[in-house]
Design a protein around this nucleic acid. Structure first.
Length: 556
RNA sequence: GCGCCUGUAGCUCAGUGGAUAGAGCAUCAGCCUCCGGAGCUGAGGGCCAGAGGUUCAAAUCCUCUCAGGCGCACCA
């Protein structure tokens, strides 16, 4: 059982009307145009509007309004339709009966947690890979945004019927982790060995490096022999990964799989297999002592090195094997969530997939633009070179998980995000997180109040639903009815922020309604009907917040 | 220089080719005997960066220009 999106219902009505017109010979037979339904901004333009009249005008050789009239006449005969008007240049404006809307309210109650879900995914496997920060330092605020988007997108895709795997790719091989190990080794020797080796510019300078050195000392005491870089590397990598996992856990995120570059790609031989396969395809050549992949043959703007002159493999080489492996794992779609600073990487990864003969449209890449922090409108400086970047941990500790996640999801991914720390933690209506959560808490409070007055939460069959006759009430019901479409659209466009905006809008309808109308009154029939509405709003708020993985508190 | 992203109200941003471009904040003016005032009501505020084009219809699609951000490694 799943929700029927209301636009689907209306689309069917319109299609049927056009077909009837064709049978009457009122309009010519032929392909139906793509029926586009929109929700007009103004009430006077109806609950739904369609432009098919204008689309058909061209091939009919008649004025759009005339075509629209013919179709409108058919729509008028449909069930649930109260009124149909032709307006403007040729829009057909459709008004639904109040009963139609009131019945949709029952659906919220009968489906509860499942309201808003559907099965367009049909159980197809999708992988969402996100965060994937190198285990060479703590997660920073930018990773947090990627984490929030990835996790929420996974929730949304699950809600529309996909089988979703959340994956974190761990770059635990190569030069970066070597430098981490070497950085720790030198700090260790500085502090405990009395040896001061030079500390190069590109080494990791953050305090966390010294902390890892100290932790090593605490765990293993003072070894008699000098500790190797490799040992420190392994220790540091593990420690960082532990910390990253912890940060993410406190941010409410659990991955299904942690995929190690070192163990699962390199040691297992998958990387060599991939290189050999490319060799067979004759897209590889030697130049200046290095091994190159002719990615330009597949749309990249320059060729790329796979194996450096010193014999080391590049990061890209692992990535080729990694993405090959993803495609071969049977996913219908693979989604990568990358920082916007990696966009230059897209062409070469796509080139790799094409070289193996795969259709690269299976890969979707979402780029997350940078986050800038401010405090009461004043920018917080973030120099990440100096190792003084703002960590995700700091922001979670200050603002809280809910505030962080809601803010990260309040913009589309490819727009810069201005994150105001003071605003995000303010317990006031200008903070959208609180505005929405408060709406939910308020409903809980009303229901509690009703119970205390001895009112039981009514069942569907006991409700005189027609008592919900205020315009505000009908508008709220219409808003609730649009939720399944919002979820669907958000999944298709892979845009979690649509849910965020929806929830804010819903709260912005409920608060004024509450303010103007009493729910619990002496009129028990009306009380029941309004409680029924409140509960539906509560359900949709819970479902929506759950998609964002933001809590729906009962009291605040 | 080349590529990607972004230019919408004072600020932060929504806006799947449609009708008079929206919201929050900020500003100004109002609202508490009553379910949570952590809320509500109202007002002002715009040449959708600019110029061409496609279309019956463009903030939205195409081209160019300007401004900002980010990339352009035998780094990750």
């Amino acid at each position: 059982m799943e929700t029927q999106e209301m636009t689907e219902t209306v689309t069917d009505i319109i299609k049927k009307a056009i077909k009837n017109c064709q049978q009457n010979m009122a309009i010519k037979a032929g392909e139906l145009p793509d029926v586009i339904i929109e929700k007009p901004k103004k009430d006077e333009f109806g609950d739904f509007a369609t432009n098919v009249g204008m689309l058909l005008a061209g091939r009919e050789g008649k004025p759009p309004r005339q075509i629209a009239e013919l179709i409108a006449a058919e729509i008028r005969l449909s069930e649930n339709v109260k009124k149909v008007e032709v307006a403007g240049p040729g829009f057909i404006n459709i008004f639904m009966h109040d009963d139609y809307w009131l019945n949709l309210l029952k659906e919220v109650h009968s489906l509860k947690q499942r309201y808003g879900t559907n099965n367009i995914g049909a159980g197809k496997k999708v992988q969402v890979e996100f965060v994937s920060a190198n285990p060479t330092g703590p997660l920073h605020i930018g990773h947090g945004r990627g984490a929030a988007v990835g996790d929420s997108l996974a929730n949304i895709l699950k809600a529309v019927g996909y089988d979703v795997v959340k994956e974190y790719y761990v770059n635990d091989a190569g030069r970066q982790v070597y430098i981490l190990g070497e950085s720790v080794r030198r700090r260790y020797n500085e502090e405990f060995g009395g040896k001061n080796e030079p500390f190069p510019e590109d080494f990791y300078k953050g305090d966390y490096v010294k902390e890892i050195a100290r932790n090593y000392r605490e765990k293993y005491g003072n070894p008699t022999q000098a500790v190797s870089t490799e040992t420190f590397q392994e220790f540091a990598c593990e420690a960082m990964l532990e910390q990253i996992k912890n940060d993410l856990k406190d941010f409410g995120i659990e991955f299904d799989r942690w995929y190690s570059e070192n163990k699962e790609l390199r040691d297992s031989g998958l990387v060599m297999t991939a290189i050999n396969e490319l060799k067979k395809k004759a897209v590889i050549f030697d130049h200046d002592g290095a091994l190159w992949f002719r990615t330009t043959q597949f749309g990249d703007d320059k060729d790329r090195v796979l194996s450096k002159a010193d014999g080391e493999l590049t990061y890209f080489t692992s990535d080729i094997a990694y993405h090959k492996n993803k495609v071969e794992s049977g996913f219908s779609t693979i989604i990568n969530i990358w920082g916007a600073d990696h966009h230059g990487y897209e062409a070469r990864v796509r080139a790799a997939l094409k070289a193996f003969g795969y259709d690269d449209s299976i890969l979707k890449i979402i780029f997350i633009q940078l986050v800038s922090l401010s405090r009461n409108g004043v920018p917080v400086p973030m120099g990440k070179r100096e190792g003084e970047f703002v960590t995700l941990r700091q922001v979670i500790d200050e603002v809280g998980t809910d505030g962080c996640r809601f803010f990260f999801l309040s913009r589309k991914s490819d727009a810069h995000l201005d994150f105001d720390l003071e605003l995000a933690k303010r317990q006031a209506p200008e903070n959208p997180v609180f505005y929405v959560q408060y709406g939910h808490a308020r409903i809980c409070s009303i229901i509690k109040h009703a119970r205390e007055k001895g009112v039981n939460i009514p069942k569907t069959e006991d409700i005189n639903i027609k008592l919900l006759s205020l315009k505000q009430e009908l508008d709220i019901i219409k808003k609730l009815a649009s939720f399944p479409d919002i979820v669907k659209g958000s999944a298709i466009a892979m845009e979690p922020h649509r849910i965020t905006f929806y929830l804010h809008e819903l709260a912005a309808m409920f608060h004024p309604y509450y303010n103007k109308n009493r729910v619990v009154t002496e009129n028990s029939e009306l009380t029941n009907a309004r409680l029924y509405l409140c509960e539906a709003v509560q359900t949709v708020m819970q479902n929506g917040l759950k998609l964002l993985a933001v809590s729906a508190p009962e009291e605040m």
